[in-house]
Amino acid sequence: MTLPNNSNLIIETAKVVVLEQEYAVVECVSKSACGSCGSAEHCGNSSIAKAFPHRVHRLSVKLTEEVQVGEQIDLGLNAKNMLTSALLIYLVPLLCLIVGAGLGKFLFAQQSSNEWGVVLMALLSLGLGFVFVRLFAKRVSRQLQYRPKMLGRHRRVV
């Protein structure tokens, strides 16, 4: 199977750890972008990125061809869906925080100790934003268009 030359896909390599009928449980390792530039040894961000271990993500993927446990496969994820999800995950809590702070400022404007009311409303709204994002993520994770698809076995370029 050849890999599609499609700029609309984000392609990641994953290792097959478990086979379950027509699905495979695969592991992907999150990598930090820090450390790859020429000034990585002098950069504080690079030092922080090296201090934290890589995260391993496990997910289930429908197989399009036969694979063996331990084999690496290429996964494709729609870039537009990924960007939309990231935008919602980061912006919704931030907007809730700002709206909550504004609402708290409006509600507690007449009281002498209005700062605590503003802070409390902002934090409550932030929490509601996180709850919304969590519910959104659960709902979206069930939709096939947001799930990664197996593109084929990983082809090493020599």
Rank of each mutant, 00 (worst) to 15 (best):
L120P: 00
L126A: 11
L88N: 09
I98W: 07
L94T: 10
L144R: 12
F130H: 11
V131Y: 12
H54L: 01
A24Y: 00
M150D: 10
V29S: 07
K149I: 15
F130Y: 15
T64I: 09
F52M: 07
A137H: 13
S46T: 02
L124R: 06
S60N: 04
V158N: 14
S36N: 07
N5M: 09
T64L: 09
Q145L: 07
F136N: 05
C96H: 04
E66D: 10
V118R: 05
S112N: 11
C43R: 03
N114G: 08
V29N: 04
S32D: 04
C96M: 14
K105D: 07
E20A: 08
K138P: 06
V16I: 04
L103F: 14
N81P: 07
L83V: 10
T13R: 08
R139N: 13
F132E: 01
V16K: 01
V69A: 09
V25Y: 06
K105L: 07
L87D: 03
L59H: 05
V56I: 15
H154M: 03
C28P: 02
R58F: 11
F52P: 00
R134Y: 13
N78A: 03
A40F: 02
M1A: 08
Y23K: 09
A49I: 01
G117E: 06
I98L: 15
A14T: 01
E12I: 15
M121C: 15
L77V: 13
Q110G: 14
S60R: 13
V25S: 04
A86Q: 07
K62E: 08
N6D: 15
L151R: 11
I73H: 04
V61I: 12
I89C: 09
Q145G: 06
R156N: 10
G35M: 01
L94K: 00
V16R: 00
Y90M: 04
V26A: 05
S113M: 10
V158R: 10
S112E: 15
L83Y: 13
H42E: 09
E41V: 06
V25M: 03
P93W: 12
M121N: 11
Y146H: 08
G38F: 07
F130T: 01
M1L: 08
V157E: 15
